[in-house]
Write a protein that binds this DNA or RNA. Structure first.
Length: 406
DNA sequence: TCTGGGGTCCTAGGACCC
DNA sequence: TCTGGGGTCCTAGGACCC
């Protein structure tokens, strides 16, 4: 008997499948999944990359992350759908609710992936994990209307690797005794946590496949890649003892950034963007009940160079005005007067119950909580009537101009 | 018509303290 | 005047994921 049986459930072309369902629901007679189609941004607003592709689109060599215009060059008849994240959140929840009807041992790993520890289901399902996987897969397809891949193994890493094998609507196992045959021949890039940068370093060392990596001396990897080296050696050998984390953890960072349609070249425009970004960050912090200990500004210039400045706060905050004033000060410090393509406001060291640094001479503390209360009531009104129902004077003009540029 | 947005984790260097 | 370690905190940047 196996120690644990872990499932990794992965929605096939998630965003695209979910857009297809939405269109069918709204009376469309084409299923996006059956034609060359992508979910992608608008290139004229410089948001133009491929977020998801249909299987017919994949046959044209279209890959996730590539510029939309390039995808069109590969397939001139491509259908392009803009992303709608609120729909994805709903579908994602529908899937995790369905899985939760089996066991509470579910970890939501991303918007379209879950881990499931089925060990606790043995009493009801016995050792026939394949039958259980088939039941889950088919129930998702029949009740929710989209397909998933399920990967099965003794740990999360192997289950995840298994769900990535042939798609769609498939179940694969990758137990330790199958590693050599099913995982080792794959190129290193296919291993979870090996990206472009590490892959090219490995290649230079003569490590081409996951098997090569597994059979490299762990000391050598650790010496060259520190912690990452030993982790990746373990992964290549199928070793991972991390538990399925059913309890949702508080977020550690929270940020909002945007690529602007036209480069920002003046401070005033930058400040308006920073205000707007600070508002969403503040709103999301308040909604999550979290306070930020650090505020940062992120910039990307027209040469795609990125840089940032951050500042630790005396007192953690969820107040828009505080975030805005710190972020704008950081911007003034950091900005190299280069044309800015992307601007972001980020917060980190998030805390649920911040310890307040008391200062007898500082009476602004009470002002800040008053302001947070005001902002919370504005949040509620906006949630009910839409974001633009309450708008700052300085942003009003700005938003109207943005609308015009759409 | 080039290249999104939101996260997590790690490392390296400097400041500062003992 | 030079020579130390060790530890913590902070900042900037970069790798990876979906």
């Amino acid at each position: 008997m196996r120690k644990r049986i872990i499932f990794h459930i992965d929605v096939n072309s998630a965003f695209l499948s979910w857009e297809a369902l939405e269109q069918l629901k709204n009376g469309s007679d084409v299923d996006l999944r059956t034609i060359p189609s992508i979910v992608g941004g608008d290139p004229s607003k410089r948001h133009g990359i491929v977020l998801a592709k249909s299987i017919p689109a994949k046959k044209f060599g279209i890959v996730t992350g590539e510029p939309v215009f390039q995808a069109i060059r590969k397939c001139p008849d491509l259908t392009i759908v803009p992303p709608s994240h609120h729909i994805y959140a709903q579908q994602s929840k529908a899937m995790s609710d369905l899985l939760l009807s089996y066991t509470p041992d579910i970890e939501k790993f991303s918007i379209d992936e879950c881990f499931m520890d089925t060990t606790g289901l043995r009493l009801r399902y016995g050792e026939d994990y394949m039958a259980l996987a088939r039941e889950i897969k088919d129930k998702i397809r029949d009740k929710l209307g989209f397909t998933v891949n399920i990967g099965i193994s003794e740990n999360k890493l192997l289950a995840k690797m298994a769900s990535d094998f042939q798609k769609p609507d498939r179940i694969h196992t990758l137990f330790p005794e199958e590693i050599q045959e099913k995982m080792w021949p794959l190129p290193v890039t296919q291993l979870y946590m090996v990206g472009k940068a590490s892959a090219s370093k490995f290649n230079r060392m003569g490590i081409k496949t996951i098997g090569d990596l597994a059979n490299t001396k762990p000391d050598l990897l650790e010496q060259q890649f520190k912690k990452y080296g030993s982790m990746i050696w373990n992964y290549a050998n199928g070793l991972d003892d991390s538990p399925v984390q059913s309890q949702e953890m508080d977020a550690k960072d929270l940020s909002n950034e945007t690529t602007v349609s036209f480069d920002i070249t003046d401070k005033e425009t930058a400040r308006l963007y920073i205000l707007s970004l600070s508002e969403t960050v503040g709103m999301r912090l308040r909604k999550a009940g979290l306070h930020a200990g650090v505020v940062a500004i992120h910039l990307k210039n027209s040469d795609f160079e990125t840089y940032s400045r951050q500042k630790k706060l005396e007192n953690a905050t969820q107040d828009t005005n505080t975030i805005f004033s710190v972020a704008s000060a950081l911007f003034e410090q950091a900005w190299k007067r280069d044309p800015i393509r992307l601007i972001g406001v980020a917060t980190s060291q998030l805390q649920r119950n911040p310890v307040k640094q008391l200062d007898m001479f500082d009476l602004t503390g009470t002002k800040q909580t008053d302001r947070v209360r005001l902002e919370e009531s504005i949040d509620k009104i906006r949630e009910k009537f839409g974001h633009d129902y309450v708008t700052r004077g300085s942003l009003l003009h700005f938003r109207q101009n943005q609308e015009k540029n759409k």
